[in-house]
Computed example of a mutant assay.
Amino acid sequence: MSTIYTSIDIAATPKRIWETLIDFGAYTEWNPFILTASGAAAEGERLHFNIRPPNGRELSFRPRVTAVVPGQRLEWVGRLGVRGVFDGRHEFRIEPLEDGLTRLHHSETFPGVLVGVLLHEGSIRSGFRAMNTALKERVERKPAAPNSVNGSTAGA
């Protein structure tokens, strides 16, 4: 069994981070690791992802959501082929800190008989870090200032 763990501190509320994590349809706008995503963040639901680890090939898989605690935790389990051969338990935990910061814990545990052969830990860890950084940039971005004054467009 192998576990890949990453974390990042984000200057945003847990609610804002959570909303971004479960908006699977928007992943194409910001996520460099999970290229496309669909499904619902509800226990028992089946998701559909296309991922591309850095320097890796694109993979498609359909994990099942196994835990949802809104604003705190999201977990799914996916597998390649038959159960027990190459499985992955993916988890996001959101931890509020002081001073307006929130820590995102992002990990995956891989049990299975072919993990030692098929798992490229460095590439997956790099993909997680890239996703974490992109999430941080997305949720920390301030909304664009309006181009209007008292309801009229400036310069019109």
Results as ranks from 00 to 15, higher is better:
residue 72 Q to V: 06
residue 153 T to D: 06
residue 119 L to T: 02
residue 101 L to E: 06
residue 4 I to V: 09
residue 18 W to Y: 05
residue 101 L to C: 06
residue 52 R to W: 03
residue 87 D to V: 05
residue 19 E to Q: 12
residue 67 A to N: 14
residue 102 T to D: 03
residue 152 S to V: 14
residue 21 L to V: 10
residue 5 Y to G: 04
residue 144 A to W: 02
residue 68 V to T: 09
residue 57 R to P: 15
residue 99 D to Y: 12
residue 130 A to V: 00
residue 123 S to V: 02
residue 76 W to D: 14
residue 38 S to G: 01
residue 111 P to R: 13
residue 95 E to A: 08
residue 56 G to K: 13
residue 155 G to N: 14
residue 46 R to I: 15
residue 31 N to A: 05
residue 156 A to V: 13
residue 68 V to C: 12
residue 9 D to I: 00
residue 146 P to M: 08
residue 69 V to I: 15
residue 82 V to I: 14
residue 51 I to L: 15
residue 122 G to F: 01
residue 111 P to L: 06
residue 89 R to I: 10
residue 18 W to L: 05
residue 37 A to V: 06
residue 80 L to W: 04
residue 20 T to G: 03
residue 74 L to V: 06
residue 38 S to D: 00
residue 25 G to W: 03
residue 46 R to Q: 13
residue 91 E to R: 13
residue 37 A to L: 03
residue 43 E to Y: 01
residue 43 E to A: 06
residue 98 E to S: 14
residue 100 G to K: 07
residue 1 M to T: 13
residue 68 V to M: 12
residue 104 L to Q: 00
residue 85 V to R: 11
residue 63 P to K: 03
residue 137 E to A: 15
residue 93 R to Q: 13
residue 145 A to F: 12
residue 81 G to P: 04
residue 17 I to G: 07
residue 83 R to A: 15
residue 94 I to H: 03
residue 10 I to S: 02
residue 89 R to W: 10
residue 145 A to S: 12
residue 127 G to D: 00
residue 7 S to Q: 10
residue 140 E to K: 11
residue 148 S to N: 11
residue 112 G to M: 02
residue 39 G to Y: 03
residue 116 G to E: 09
residue 21 L to H: 03
residue 11 A to M: 06
residue 153 T to K: 11
residue 89 R to S: 05
residue 102 T to Y: 01
residue 54 P to K: 02
residue 82 V to N: 07
residue 129 R to A: 01
residue 120 H to D: 12
residue 60 S to N: 10
residue 104 L to F: 00
residue 126 S to G: 07
residue 32 P to E: 00
residue 77 V to D: 10
residue 50 N to F: 07
residue 86 F to H: 02
residue 40 A to W: 05
residue 82 V to H: 04
residue 110 F to L: 01
